[in-house]
């Protein structure tokens, strides 16, 4: 079995009385597209910061490609590219200068061919010699992605990269990140857009109050937690409510069930009760429901 891309063992972190991480255990396999989800304050950014060496945990160990982030920090940091959540930039430099400097920090000189390739992939070639201050927010966000890639890290962490980003850029960014994943990079993503996580991530960990409260493949999570739903518009909504449905506006009543096999018996009972089904919609399980349910149970 190959080395995990990321290994997190019993990591704890306090900020005064606040417990940001309360014993997190996690492994991300090489080549995975992994989602790290949780409400604000769940500890996602603290965990990423600990991986990147920006935060020192109180206990536990973290490894990137087998390199301990404290004792073997040089190799751990070379293996990791981080796209930070905040839109930060150095106002003194142009895009190309910044990427050359960032390459140099990682010990790499003569990196222009790769820098040109990243700029082209992120549609930044025309802005290569423009000062960072003159770029739009979306462009700055792309430069942050470019900065995380200059040293060709096998593991890339994106901390809410699409927060406040328009649809076009978001789609372009995901196409690029998918390509990186296909090329063999391990991707770890935190996001509040659950539909993005559902579409992109093969496996997901959910954090709450510094603990992992769910960790499984996206498919398994959808199977395990989410219920299917049936929405029907009834001539007699009260009859539907009497059968356990939740009344909505305009005669609509919502039913939740675990399997499509239950639909037939439910419709039969509605018919027997004389509810009069006028319209019907089936609801697929989605990650948002899973998320809500996991957070309520945890």
């Amino acid at each position: 079995m190959s080395l995990p891309a990321i290994r997190v063992c019993a990591v704890t972190k306090h900020y005064g009385a606040l417990q940001a991480l309360a014993g997190v255990d996690l492994e991300v396999r090489q080549g995975e597209f992994f989602g790290l989800l949780g409400p604000n304050g769940a500890g996602k950014t603290t965990l990423i910061s600990a991986l990147a060496g920006l935060v020192r945990p109180d206990g536990g160990t973290l490894e990137v490609m087998g390199h301990n982030v404290a004792s073997d920090y040089r190799n751990a940091r070379r293996a990791l590219g981080v796209v930070p959540q905040e839109l930060v930039f150095d106002p003194f430099f142009s895009v190309r200068e910044l990427l050359r400097i960032q390459s140099g920090y990682f010990g790499i000189r003569g990196n222009d061919d790769w820098i040109d390739e990243i700029l082209a992939s992120l549609d930044l070639t025309a802005k290569a010699n423009v000062n960072m201050r003159a770029l739009s927010g979306g462009m700055k966000r792309r430069v942050l992605v470019a900065q995380a890639l200059v040293h060709r890290p096998p593991v890339i962490v994106l901390d809410e990269p699409t927060a406040g980003v328009d649809v076009e850029l978001r789609q372009g960014l995901w196409a690029f990140v998918r390509k990186l994943n296909r090329d063999g990079h391990t991707i770890v993503l935190t996001t509040h857009y659950l539909e993005e996580a559902e579409a992109l991530c093969g496996r997901i960990a959910m954090l709450k109050a510094g603990r992992v409260v769910a960790l499984d493949t996206t498919d398994n999570l959808l199977q395990r937690f989410a219920t299917h739903s049936l929405r029907v518009r009834l001539a007699e909504p009260a009859a539907g409510v009497a059968l356990g449905g939740a009344a909505g506006e305009g005669g609509w009543v919502d039913f939740a069930f675990d399997s499509y096999a239950d639909v037939e018996s439910l419709l039969a009972r509605l018919r027997e009760a004389g509810a009069g089904v006028q319209e019907m919609q089936l609801g697929e399980p989605d990650l948002e429901r899973v998320f809500v349910e996991v957070m309520q149970r945890a």
């Binding site: 990147a52 920006l54 990791l80 930060v88 920090y105």
Partner: peptide, 17 residues
């Protein structure tokens, strides 16, 4: 300046001692 604007992160992420 780097701390307040947040770009100190670009110096802290690389493998500099």
């Amino acid at each position: 300046q780097s701390k307040i604007t947040g770009n100190i992160i670009f110096v802290l992420l690389p493998p500099l001692s």
